[in-house]
Write a protein that binds this DNA or RNA. Structure first.
Length: 636
RNA sequence: GCCGAUGUAGCUCAGUGGUAGAGCAACGCUUUCGUAAAGCGUGGGUCGUCGGUUCAAUCCCGACCAUCGGCUCCA
């Protein structure tokens, strides 16, 4: 596979990095060093813990190697010769394994530059002096072959570009990304906090952030009403048995909070002398009746016999809900349904809790408690395509309104070689065809990805690219044949027979937390007026016009505008600066002449000073802008 | 969870084996000002937590907690 010139450069940079590391640390054992989307890395096993200072030394050595202008020379060798070369260099720890990965019959090649030689398919630049603009960025731990059972190596990340200018631009982009990081903006703009005493990964929405969330929720609420959804509310917990029926417990136990067991039950099993392991086994077990019911409904053994325990030994408890579907299913099941009722669309901003690994938590984008803008649609098989299309349009409306135009749609299909999927192949064929057709009808570019389906049905994900090129899976639509069966759901068809409905899970935002996190970075804190926590800042030039300011403030508030009056005894420049830093879309400067003529001097975040306008004209303007959910204008 | 780094005032950060300092913010006074920082003053800290070493620890050592950069994971 040919490398692009940029990949070639970065790949060569990683060899030069390895050359430098071996000069400074001759006992380093090398693993691999490929190029990446934004640079390169090399994985190295070394007893010495690399520090930031080492990075500087290595970088200086790389500079020297570049100046030495060593040619990259390709050598094709036999397998036996390859083993020899690796042995001579004392690099057998990882390189022999890498060599073994090369299939019989394929060329085995090494690349040499100066004293360094590395097993490598290539390709490379011709001379080390081609490397003119590079920088080592960070050190990280990385498992050999990405498997946590293997040794953890030290990974050195760096980046390289053809010219110094492009490198400088890239570093500049990284700086900008830091400036719009939602964790920094969240703090600066007081949007959310995470408090150690409450717990890691648990978001506290402050008043400003809550406005943002509330506006998004009412926006989507409006769309849901248009599309015939019913709003429901369900509690944050549910009994363990509910999740045993759905199949979520205990199979996903590792990513759930531990069950809540009632004090009296705990006391009683302690009296019986139960060990911790006994307790876990009793929590995981099911009654013979539950097993029989679920297996009969599924038509196969989904709950094995070894999970059954005598009824009097069973221990039930409550779980923080890891998903909303079982609760919504119970609402659907509480009534008999005719085919004429379908589709039933139940929507809820439902908060769920998942035990994410501590190292994975990140601001608002990876948390342990989050609120999905969730809904479950119960429909007939014939309605699947239309309902999927409805869900997809909703996601599209959301993304378009927010100006998030850089996204792709991924249709996840089943892996033809796997039998982990529930439901009949005929149903799968139909559902996949429906998803494919719906995506086509929607008119957006999409890719089909076999193996990306959930075990219970195909799904369609919206993957949004943010300003710095990272991809986020936000909105999702999933077809589910499994849960309606496990819960024994039914409706009466036109033939007067009971039929099993199909269920669709969908969440256009995904979760409010992640979505807001991405949205903060998307806008860099410069929210459109309809989302901005504060929409208008009134800035009197002196105390003499405070009365006028208060008068306007009353009128703005009466019109439903979020506004405040800056009564600090600062100079105008300082008040303007404060409003700018707080990213208020409109600042109205008030002086004596404005007070006299019922006018305001408008300063917009996008354009700066716009001159004096009648207050009523400004009021109309901002009301329209908010009602239209207009996107912010580009800054001048 | 794993590897590494970090944790000092609300924020950004400096600092030392002898019980801490700046700028901004807050508060008070003066100033009443025309489009990104007026002046003076005041208050504010168990130096992440818990242990250990020491006559003495914010500083040295250990454990834990949290954050950051990655890895692994994400129904």
């Amino acid at each position: 596979m040919a490398m692009s010139p940029l990949e070639e450069l970065r790949h060569s940079a990683s060899h030069i990095l390895a050359t430098a590391v071996l000069r400074l640390f001759p006992d380093a054992k090398l693993d691999i060093g490929p190029p990446t989307d934004s640079g390169f890395y090399y994985d190295i096993d070394l007893d010495h813990k690399l520090t930031q200072d080492d990075l500087g030394r290595i970088e200086a050595e790389m500079k020297k190697i570049a100046d030495e202008n060593q040619p990259f020379i390709r050598k094709e060798v036999s397998r036996a010769e390859a083993i020899d070369i690796i042995r001579q260099r004392g690099q057998e720890r990882y390189k022999l394994g890498r060599l073994a990965d090369i299939p019989e019959g394929e060329a085995i090649s090494f690349y040499q530059n100066g004293e360094f030689i590395d097993l490598c398919a290539g390709t490379h630049v011709r001379y080390t002096s081609k490397l003119k603009a590079f920088k080592l960025l960070s050190i990280a731990g990385a498992y050999h072959r990405g498997d946590e059972k293997n040794a953890q190596l030290q990974r050195i990340y760096g980046t390289a570009f053809p010219t110094k200018e492009e490198l400088a631009q890239h570093l500049e982009r990284l700086e900008q990304a830091k400036a719009r990081d939602h964790r920094k903006l969240g703090k600066d703009l007081k949007l959310f906090v995470i408090d150690e005493d409450v717990g890691q990964g648990l978001i506290l929405w402050t008043p400003n952030g809550s406005i943002l969330r509330q506006e998004l929720q009412s926006f989507i609420g409006e769309e849901l009403r248009k599309q015939g959804y019913s709003q429901v509310f369900t509690p944050h917990i549910g009994k363990l048995e509910l999740y045993k029926t759905s199949g979520h417990f205990p199979y996903y136990k590792d990513s759930q909070f531990s069950p809540v067991v009632e004090n009296e039950s705990l006391a009683s099993i302690i009296r019986e002398g139960c060990s911790c392991a006994d307790m876990v086994a009793r929590l995981d077990a099911v009654s013979a009746k539950l097993r029989e019911t679920v297996n009969a409904r599924s038509g196969k053994e989904v709950i094995p016999a070894d999970r059954v325990l005598d009824a009097d030994k069973l221990l039930d408890g409550f779980m923080l809900k890891p998903m909303n579907c079982p609760h919504h299913i119970k609402i659907f099941a509480s009534q008999p349904h005719s085919y004429r009722d379908l589709p039933v669309r139940l929507a809820e901003f439902g908060t769920v809790y998942r035990w994410e690994q501590s190292g994975e938590l990140n601001g608002m984008t990876r948390v342990r408690g989050f609120t999905q803008d969730d809904a479950h649609l119960f429909c007939t098989e014939a309605q699947v395509e239309q309902e999927v299309l409805g869900c997809l349009s909703l996601v599209k409306i959301v993304l378009t309104t927010l100006g998030m135009s850089d996204y792709r749609v991924r249709v996840g299909l089943r892996d033809p070689d796997s039998n982990k999927y529930t439901g009949s192949p005929e149903n799968w064929d139909k559902a996949e065809a429906a998803c494919r057709h719906a995506a086509k009808t929607l008119g957006v570019p999409f890719t089909e990805e076999p193996g990306e389906a959930a075990f219970y049905g195909p799904k369609i994900d919206f993957v949004v690219k943010d300003v710095i090129g990272r991809e986020w899976q936000l909105g999702t639509v999933q077809v589910d044949y499994n849960l309606p069966v496990r819960f024994g759901l039914s409706y009466i068809g036109a033939d007067n027979q009971a039929h099993t409905p199909v269920m669709i899970h969908r969440a256009p935002f995904g979760s409010m937390e992640r979505f807001c996190g991405v949205l903060i970075e998307h806008f860099g804190g410069d929210f459109p007026a309809w989302l901005a926590p504060e929409q208008v800042r009134l800035v009197p030039i002196s105390d003499k016009v405070i009365d006028y300011g208060q008068n306007l403030l009353r009128q703005l508030k009466a019109a439903g505008i979020r506004a405040s009056l800056d009564e600090h005894s600062d100079k105008l420049g300082a008040k303007i600066r404060r409003a700018e830093l707080e990213k208020v879309p409109y600042t109205l400067v008030l002086g004596a002449k404005e007070a006299e003529s019922q006018s305001v001097s408008v300063r917009s975040r996008a354009k700066g000073d716009e001159g004096v306008h009648a207050f009523t004209a400004f009021l109309d303007r901002i009301k329209t802008e908010i009602a239209n959910r207009a996107l912010p204008e580009k800054k001048k």
